[in-house]
Amino acid sequence: MTIIRLDSVTKFYGQIKIIDDISLKIKLGERLIILGPSGCGKTTILRLIAGLIAPDEGKIVIEGELASENGQILLPPEQRNLGMVFQDLALWPHFSVAGNIEFGLKAIGMPLRERKIRIMDTLKLVGLEGFAERKPGELSGGQQQRVALARALASRPGALLMDEPLSSLDPELNIRLRKEVLRLHEKSGFTLLYVTHDREEAWALSNRMILMRKGRIEIDGSVEEARDYFNRDLLER
């Protein structure tokens, strides 16, 4: 079942075509990794899907509903039922860990008792029981990462968008959190859309992979196909 569909989507930033006629189908439960050099438009795809920006041409369909079309956002981000982990995490510094998680649950109108249970469940899922009342500023980098994950997952979104969330971490922590993400995916079965420029990360996480360059999709296939492509690329140079 297709959960997100992009039809011939094009996006300009000023004169520059940042996304060039991309079509894409994402299936329920998939782990799709978008890999590419910086400036290739991979973050833009996430923002288009999230509804933070509108495509100049083409349309985006989410869970069967037309979400964006030809420069217009028909379904605002707050109604798309997605979760997102930002590159800078964007944890709200004035809320506690629980507050960060609760915010979205409250926004979708979940009653208090259910909220409390959900917060506890989510914290347990990411292994942060006992940190509910801490402020984000009082946590370590890895812990903050988990809070961001928990916040994005708490409302059980249709898909989780992650924008290079691990890029600022040291290699050891990076590897540990990758495993964590895999474990969470296995446990909860959400659709994952993960953007990165780090090949190691990409190999480790994906079951489907997209290589992007200059706003276009070069390869859409399995990890092996992507590896082949890279090896060929090296030989040809």
């Binding site: 930002f86 964007a90 915010f103 926004a107 916040r151 968008l161």
Partner: peptide, 21 residues
């Protein structure tokens, strides 16, 4: 950072809620 507001949007909050909270 603009992501503060964007994160709240994706979490499902309307404009007034985001402004106040």
């Amino acid at each position: 950072p603009p992501t503060m507001d964007e994160a709240a949007r994706i979490a499902g909050a309307g404009w007034i809620r985001r402004m106040i909270l």
